[in-house]
Simulated assay, not measured.
Amino acid sequence: MSEQDIALLPHQFAKSAAIAKQAGFTGVQIHAGHGFLLSQFLSPLFNHRTDLYGGSVENRSRIIIEVIAEVRSTVGGTFPIGIKINCSDQLEGGLTQEDALEVISLLNTTSIDLIEISGGSYFPGAKSSSDSASNGRTSLIFQ
């Protein structure tokens, strides 16, 4: 995606949230897990960008922070906004638990109301980091 394409994303998410609110939904969730677009920004396995949206966890989280700000601006301060993120991609070279904790710290500086922590992604040909684990589960430990 070009930076111009990325710049359109917050408005598109906000427009969707506004439609949901107008339709009578009582909140929205931004999906940034399981290999979907925003998850791919977070994952160093897929995000090889060298601009403002790549590199550090902070940069890889930038579009998500921008989306949250635009959605909040559009739906107002009392309409709940949640987000789903991975605790780990469970893919070699993907988002780690340490990265996820850093993302959560960044999300805590936003107006997000709820963080749902999930995990895992499936991409054909990508080696799972849980292949050698006994049960394939990942635990996120908060300190």
Rank of each mutant, 00 (worst) to 15 (best):
F46P: 03
Q4F: 10
S121A: 14
S130Q: 15
S43Y: 04
T138E: 09
Q4L: 14
G119Q: 04
F79A: 08
H34W: 04
Q40V: 01
I117W: 09
D89T: 09
Q4P: 01
H34S: 04
S132M: 15
R60K: 01
P80A: 11
H34Y: 06
E102P: 05
P80S: 08
E58S: 14
S128L: 10
Q29L: 15
S2K: 02
I112G: 02
E58W: 08
L101E: 03
D131K: 13
G24H: 00
T26F: 02
V71K: 00
T78E: 15
Q90K: 13
S118E: 03
A14V: 13
Q29E: 15
G94Q: 03
E98L: 04
F123L: 06
T74G: 01
G27C: 08
G76L: 07
I141Q: 09
I68V: 13
H11Y: 12
G27H: 04
S39C: 10
S129A: 12
K15G: 11
N135V: 10
S121F: 02
F46H: 07
S105F: 07
S56F: 06
L140Y: 05
S39K: 01
G35P: 10
S73L: 12
G136P: 10
G24K: 00
E3A: 12
P124D: 12
S73G: 13
D51L: 11
K84N: 08
S139W: 09
L52P: 05
F41V: 04
I81S: 05
G24F: 02
N59E: 02
F46V: 04
A14R: 00
G119D: 01
I83D: 03
V71G: 04
S61C: 09
A100P: 12
Q143M: 10
G77Q: 13
S73T: 12
A133I: 14
H34R: 03
I30L: 14
G77C: 15
Y122I: 10
N135D: 15
G125E: 01
S43N: 05
G119I: 10
T96S: 14
Q12V: 09
L95Y: 06
V28Q: 00
F46I: 11
K127G: 10
V28W: 01
